[in-house]
Design a protein around this nucleic acid. Structure first.
Lengths: 244, 244
DNA sequence: CAGCGTATGTTTACGCCGTATACGTACACC
DNA sequence: GGTGTACGTATACGGCGTAAACATACGCTG
């Protein structure tokens, strides 16, 4: 650390001669797609999606914005890269665990791991829906497709016919993304407030028009957690495995 | 129609005198929040979310961008307004139908109507997840809160205790938004292509690494439709109504 | 009808954004 | 040691959201 030039762009250009060797470019050496994506994800985790701009990310890496275009074709591709990064993290997490013995248990394991990755990067989760709605199947990041392959293999391996596999696959994905999205909806309006009702900002809602919502709002603010996730998934798999 | 000035900003300002009466502002008379939101939604439906900018929407209404700030506090508020518009459309649709007799059937009716509204505005659907993740409960648009109230009322009216109500409510929302999101994922890569495999762009995927996905891709491209929606919802409600 | 406050839309300007294009420059290889 | 190339820089353009100051026509008061 101490030996590294802390800010590659500092110093008077008139006296510094060749200000930096090429390998010094970027705050800690050469760029790479992995470094760009890791830095982008970290930035999003720290400051939210809206803080992610090419210029800002460049600054984060000690580099001009245009340098990033060697590693992502544009901003959209960068966002797809973030999605890919999340799925790579999912693959790592799954690889670090023992596979379950039944297809049901294995799907539960995948679901749980996905949930955990999403909760670890809540600010990035919106990308899972928005980019998926922007990119056709065949252009999804490879890690996403590998995840699809994993789930589909599990289902066909369990002996379901094509129609059932498709139904189960869709239900699995739907429930997963829906559950996570619902789980991450912010409930607290004013974190500094002690009183639960004020914390939730209930005084902002038209009182008499929404009596039931007011009543259960506090309970709604709790999370369903992985139990809720597992319960719903179980219900769906039961039904569709029987029908299909 | 014929009597209205087709383009309020046209004409030579040096000869036109007071170029327009105040009531002529905007392409068809005064602005209003409803008109702004309707125009925004139409623009999004027509050209996608990325086409929606303050300037562009202003032009659409025959008005400068800043004029819109009288009807929405900023771009984010405008997007929340779009979410509200979708829920208002849902309310209309529900009001135009007979209520179902059981709480189960009524939830199915609400789910189906929501699905239909979403499929009518596919380009706007990402807002349902992104804005929901950006806005705490108490600040959601009123129409959204009314929708929550409707569902919660249905559930408490059916006699469930608070814990069960919350579980069912969350499962309902999760499944709904997840199913719609999954349903709207684009599958076709090249609409001009005849051959199904090429249409899907399967040649872009690493063949040997994703054999199962390749095999079911065509089936995956079909939609689950309202049947799939109803089936999954039924499974969830069954399980959670029994457990809760 | 006269005058005025207010509601409504315009103008101008600022800093940020994504990105096309042209350009240096240090490295790897012969 | 010279050269091609991979990598990052520099500059520029049009569009974005929006703050602030401004113009104007309506509706109310007398």
């Amino acid at each position: 650390m101490a030996g590294e030039r802390p800010e590659a762009r500092s110093g008077d250009p008139r006296t510094a001669g060749p200000a930096r060797r090429a390998a010094d470019r970027g705050r800690y050496g050469r760029l790479s797609r992995a470094r760009v994506l890791a830095s982008a994800l970290e930035l999003v985790d720290r400051e939210g999606l809206s803080a992610l701009s090419m210029r800002r990310l460049g600054a984060e890496l000690g580099v001009e914005a245009m340098a990033l275009y060697r590693y992502a074709e544009g901003k959209d591709a960068l966002l797809d890269g973030l999605v890919e990064a999340l799925y790579l993290e999912l693959e790592e997490r799954l690889a670090g665990q023992a596979e379950a013995s039944s297809w049901r248990a294995e799907l539960q394991r995948v679901a749980r791991a996905t949930y955990e990755v999403c909760l670890a990067h809540p600010q990035a989760v919106p990308l899972l829906t928005t980019r998926m709605l922007a990119v056709p199947l065949a252009r999804r990041p490879l890690a996403v497709l590998r995840n699809h392959e994993r789930v589909l293999t599990l289902l066909t391996g369990a002996g379901f016919d094509d129609a059932a596999v498709v139904g189960l696959f869709r239900a699995f994905n739907s429930w997963l993304i829906g559950y996570v999205s619902e789980e991450l909806r912010p409930m607290v309006d004013n974190p500094d407030e002690e009183e639960p009702a004020f914390r939730l900002g209930l005084h902002r809602m038209p009182a008499h028009e929404l009596p039931v919502l007011r009543g259960v709002a506090a309970a709604l603010a709790e999370r369903g957690g992985t139990e809720g996730l597992a319960t719903g998934l179980d219900a769906l798999l039961d039904r569709l495995a029987a029908t299909g």
